[in-house]
Design a protein around this nucleic acid. Structure first.
Lengths: 344, 344
DNA sequence: GACTAGTGTGGGAGCGCTCCCATACCTCTG
DNA sequence: CAGAGGTATGGGAGCGCTCCCACACTAGTC
């Protein structure tokens, strides 16, 4: 009737051709050791001759696992982040999943309605686990998914004490490294432009900034801190405030490259040279940083590596959830790296 | 035994609770009109009370459709394109699929080996159709997929006469608009830096450039054409050649923003001012364009809209392939738009 | 008042696997 | 040489749906 998959061979047919039973073919396909070498070869030949590929739906139904995982990206955040962020993350996740022979289901969540629909998908048992990119401080999704009994790994965390397994980069170290570098360049009136405080990443980078100052023997000064929102326009706004309040500043640590681009524009308009008058450091090491004039010193995060680590962790969680082994929540914090360019 | 999905209700249980048969519940779930209003309400209540969600694997097995489609992105290309390209494309595809209640399987193909594995996935009937991003001139994948009997829609085309359904932007129009704009600015010695000629998109933009010149009454001159490869470094190299060959040029149309960034660097080193000495136009309208100094005039492609269109087309193809209606290959070419900034 | 057409509904028969129990055979013990 | 303890194998019983045939029951026809 449907024509399309009419000719596709089944396990049964492979079994018949190899002169063995269904169970045996299944064992060979799934790499069970309980098969004689001779039988294995015979089955392998039949599989090759017929071009057999196991039907995924049947496998999922009988075995209650899908060999697929979902990666959820909240649309709102997708626009905030330095653009290649999510693509790099996807790249890492995808590479690791390919090695494990698992599929990646990508879900962009645009609205509350879509979030609910996504929960339906999860309930329909389409995936074995979930990867969450960029969660806000009060995001209920991670907990909801766990209630459904699905393993989850997040990128970043919601709070200092995050109960859900996650992979994060060392954002405190990022702030600290930036400040140490600026101090090393002889700067002492170092300002910072932060992200929104409902995101842990923003608080962490600010914390690192303060720690860096303290370590250098410079007392942190709140008049040198201005809140941005990770957008270029937010960076501009925060920089103007800063310039009003502290015209004597000699360096700025912007918590993202995109904000640093805004800062750079304001400095140009104000007639301040970079780096001579004001040194500038961003975070992300995005393509934007390389193309800025002058090229921007920036703290690099190992985004692709974070993706890989997340996928690895999730796969392990999936394994262990089957074995019902109770495991303490895992966390990984990957190191960041300062990339020095001409802006500092 | 497995614990995780122990409590998940089945069709059968919903039927029992609603006091109807399995078939009736299935009809309600699938929106068949052959159900009385009264029964429909009763079933709907049972569904709500039990929190029933149909098991996707069972559906796929029984109904031989997955409600999922694959989006394939060749890794090599992913690095070439102006970064947000694929994310925008994904955004469009995802939005359209969400409306149709379909899932998106994302596949990054890194190697020949992975391409083969991907074909296995298709054979395993995991998806109802395939979206292909960025195919090279000699890519066999589109045809292979059609041989498997799966509907395909590509982003871009391989040749002028592409047999596979596709969505493309008007690349010829892009080149033409860029040249017309430069001519309008009083330029007459307009050079171009192209993409690699094995990509149709590169040939089309070059064709548009030539058409634009001809329309303006300027005879195209091959010494003003230099081949790039869509990378920044390629743009630099091509620009140096051009400057050697035709130091008198007064404008450059670069076939991508990334190459334009390379061009801009070379011009700065050569002491040429933009736009006073040399006007510059790129393609993509990427974030890079906005942040360049001066901001880059660029031809915008409706990337997200292309994604949406692709998804819509594929969904229609899937429908029609079920109905076995023979359809002529479809194609959509979406208009581009010149965004004028200070570089020209 | 028997006949035809609808409607709504129930439930059997699969879809193509995995799981696991039963069986056959083989090897080693005492 | 009976019994125990492997190892390899076959195949039944499901997994939770969709498809479709069969059966009511209703309403309209001559």
């Amino acid at each position: 009737m449907s024509g399309r998959q009419s000719g596709r061979p089944t396990l049964e047919q492979v079994a018949a051709r190899a002169g063995v039973g269904r169970g045996t073919v299944s064992r060979v396909i799934n790499g069970s050791p309980r098969v004689s070498e001779q039988t294995r070869t015979a089955v392998a030949r039949a599989v090759a001759e017929l071009g057999y590929v196991p039907n995924q739906a049947a496998r999922a139904l009988a075995g209650s696992r899908t060999d697929a995982i979902a990666l959820v990206i909240p649309e709102a955040e997708a626009r905030l982040f330095a653009e290649p962020y999510f693509l790099d993350l996807i790249r890492g996740v995808s590479a690791e999943l390919a090695e494990a022979d698992k599929q990646l289901l990508l879900t962009l969540v645009r609205s509350e309605q879509e979030r609910q629909r996504f929960e339906q998908y999860l309930a329909a048992q389409r995936v074995d686990g979930v990867l969450l990119a960029s969660v806000h401080g009060d995001d209920p999704l991670p907990d909801r998914i766990r209630e459904l009994g699905l393993p989850v790994v997040m990128n970043g965390r919601r709070t200092e004490a995050e109960p859900v397994p996650y992979v994060d980069s060392d954002n405190i170290g990022a702030g600290r490294a930036a400040v140490a570098h600026l101090v090393g360049r002889g700067r002492s009136r170092i300002a910072t432009i932060t992200g929104p405080f409902d995101m842990y990443v923003a608080r962490a980078r600010l914390g690192g900034y303060r720690a860096g100052l303290t370590e250098a023997g410079i007392p942190p000064d709140e008049t040198l801190v201005s809140a941005g929102d990770f957008t270029e326009e937010g960076g501009r706004r925060a920089m103007r405030e800063l310039l009003d309040r502290r015209p004597d500043l000699d360096a700025v640590f912007a918590a993202s490259d995109v904000m640093a681009a805004g800062v750079r524009g304001v400095l140009r308009e104000a007639g301040r040279r970079v780096p001579e008058d004001v040194a500038l450091v961003g975070v992300d090491d995005s393509p934007v940083a390389r193309l800025m004039d002058p090229p921007l010193t920036s703290v690099r995060q190992p985004i692709e590596e974070m993706g890989r680590t997340m996928a690895r962790m999730l796969i392990r969680e999936i394994h262990e959830s089957t074995e019902a082994a109770p495991v303490e929540p895992r966390r990984h914090v990957l190191p960041t790296e300062l990339i020095v360019r001409e802006s500092s």
